[in-house]
């Protein structure tokens, strides 16, 4: 497997990265962990004219607790998320998703921001980001903007970055009260993308009612999808088995999967239903615990 030829540079500062992207125009692409881009190039599904490698930029690998949210820099690897105390203590859904992204060696290299930027509907992170209502910090040589994740994810492998912009950071809000979350992924083996996965997150108010809810689905639509109706059904309610079942039903209605080698559409919807319920049960236990 031999990728096509391209031009390459590996700047050492964000400014240089942005300047190079601006100068190279449409043919240029950011190379982060390369764990999606390089396989695509090897299969000749992608042939960028120019790669701007950001791996030599120092100071981008942070995972920081900044009042109110956790900031994850463009070079924080999946492995860093797995090992992060900040994540472990602030976001259950992220902590439960991280070990199931790809395989241990791929996690040593691939980045969360790269994954978010890639917008693969079978990718795990964007569902977790949706459930957590994350924000994406986009930067270009002309400035910075903060994009809610719902607006960032446009379609199948399409984000809302403008030419010349990079994802500099992703911001994950912290729970305002007690919270919990889970990422349940049905994969066929380690290293497999999700057949179906559900990210769920809830926060409880002082009365034990659900104050906020986030539910998002992987691999059952042309992009990672928020199950809004399920979320709406939960907010303001007291958690119960029946409520979670209802949320599962509503979530499964937000799934529009295709029948393929991994399974039938009916079954995938059923898994969404079951995983939503189970995820919420776990989230509740954490929020109460």
């Amino acid at each position: 497997m031999f990728p096509p030829a391209f031009e390459y540079s590996a700047p050492t500062s964000v400014e240089e990265v942005l300047a190079t992207l601006a100068a190279e125009g449409d043919g240029a692409r950011v190379l982060a962990g390369g764990q999606s881009l390089i396989p695509m190039m090897k299969l000749r599904l992608a042939s960028p004219a120019y790669l701007v490698d950001i791996n030599n930029v120092s100071g981008l690998d942070y995972i920081e607790d900044v009042n109110g949210h956790v900031a994850i820099g463009a070079l924080a690897r999946h492995r860093d998320i797995v090992n992060s105390d900040v994540i472990a203590s602030t976001n259950h859904a992220m902590a439960s998703a991280a070990p199931w992204v790809a395989d241990p060696i791929v996690r040593n290299r691939g980045t969360l921001c790269g994954s978010v930027a890639h917008c693969d509907p079978e990718g795990d992170w964007n569902s977790v980001m949706l459930a957590a209502r994350a924000q994406v910090v986009a930067q270009s040589s002309t400035g910075e903007r903060v994009i809610p994740i719902d607006d960032f994810i446009v379609d199948f492998f399409t984000n809302s970055l403008q030419p010349g912009e990079i994802v500099k950071e992703v911001r994950v809000p912290k729970y305002s009260g007690s919270g919990g979350g889970a990422y349940l992924k049905l994969e066929r083996k380690i290293g497999d993308y999700a057949t179906v996965a559900v990210a769920s997150q809830i926060e409880l108010d002082g009365d034990g009612k659900i104050a906020k809810a986030g539910i998002a689905l992987t691999a059952v639509n042309n992009k990672n999808t928020r199950a809004s109706a399920a979320e709406d059904a939960l907010v303001g309610e007291t958690p119960s088995d029946e409520l979670f079942r209802e949320a599962g039903d509503l979530a499964s209605q937000a799934a529009n999967p295709e029948t393929n080698v991994r399974g039938t559409a009916d079954w995938k919807r059923e898994v969404v239903r079951v995983y939503t319920r189970r995820g919420l049960e776990t989230a509740l236990a954490q929020a109460q615990g």
Partner: peptide, 13 residues
């Protein structure tokens, strides 16, 4: 010191 899949890195890196 970190395991990497070298089929998914460029030599220049």
């Amino acid at each position: 010191g970190t395991p990497m899949k070298t089929c998914t890195m460029f030599a220049v890196q």
